[in-house]
């Protein structure tokens, strides 16, 4: 089984990387883009029966820094 975990910066946390990407997109001439936020996708291949609470624990203990980031778990 595969689970995808999306880690994103919390609202209000400055994202210099997203800003730089936005700037580069504008430089390519795509002027309709209003904002860009960059995050991280982590794919986990696992046995059936890995619980949501285990996945959440992985996120809070390691995959996301809860001071600045949120996570979303997408089970396939």
């Amino acid at each position: 089984m595969k689970t995808r975990i999306f880690v994103t910066l919390k609202n209000g946390v400055l994202d210099p990387q997203g800003k730089a990407i936005h700037h580069a997109i504008e430089g390519l001439g795509f002027s309709a883009v209003q904002d860009v936020r960059a995050g991280r996708l982590i794919e986990i291949q696992h046995e059936q029966g890995l619980s949501t609470s285990d996945l959440e624990a992985m996120c809070t203990k390691l995959l996301a820094n809860m001071v600045i980031e949120n996570f979303e778990i997408e089970q396939a």
Partner: peptide, 17 residues
């Protein structure tokens, strides 16, 4: 130390990249 929870806050990418 911040990642280990011994100090509060986080160190992010420099604002000027």
């Amino acid at each position: 130390l911040t990642e280990a929870g011994l100090l509060p806050g986080a160190l992010m990418r420099n604002a000027g990249i």
